[in-house]
């Protein structure tokens, strides 16, 4: 099958890989690069667990033609922590029991990160709106919303 070279930044480091033509970004991240942090849920844009940031904005990687991120910056949950130091959102998710089975968590984290990067002190309503494209099959929305609000309140500082 025809393969095309694609170069992009993933969590700040350069990637150059060959991808099958027509493949989506989720496949390229998981199978090509080996970043297993974005999950495959539905492959049709409905669940949001494959959410990554492209140039800081949330996108569904399962519906993103991989070659459209050529030269762009992609962020996944694998890049949230700095070494052993977790991101404020990750701490807040643990403290607030925001992950049950955890399958929606990577998408929730990225949707929340996009929100907090743009709007460091969102209202509850804005948090609900920001994660409205993400389904939690364990239906644990309240703890997730609380975690995002707690992370915002910590100003990213409380956890280091």
């Amino acid at each position: 099958m025809a393969k095309k070279p694609i170069q992009f930044q993933l969590n700040g480091s350069g990637q150059a890989i060959f991808a099958e033509e027509g493949s989506n970004l989720l496949d390229v991240l998981r199978r090509g690069v080996g970043d297993l942090s974005p999950k495959y849920g539905c492959g049709q844009g409905t669940c949001g667990t494959c959410t990554v940031l492209v140039n800081g904005e949330p996108r569904l990687s399962c519906l993103t033609l991989a070659e459209t991120v050529e030269g762009q910056s992609v962020e996944t949950t694998a890049g949230l922590a700095h070494g052993p130091q977790l991101h404020a959102l990750q701490h807040a998710f643990m403290d607030n029991f925001a992950a049950q089975c955890g399958y929606c968590t990577p998408g929730m984290l990225m949707a929340a990160k996009a929100l907090l990067d743009r709007n460091p002190s969102p209202s509850r309503e804005e948090v609900v709106e920001a994660i409205s494209g993400n389904i939690c099959r364990c239906t644990g929305y309240e703890p997730i919303i609380n975690a995002v609000l707690a992370a915002a309140q910590s100003g990213g500082r409380r956890y280091g």
Partner: peptide
């Protein structure tokens, strides 16, 4: 139209 990620696409 859709959620935030859909609207970006």
């Amino acid at each position: 139209v859709g959620g935030p990620a859909i609207r970006n696409m």
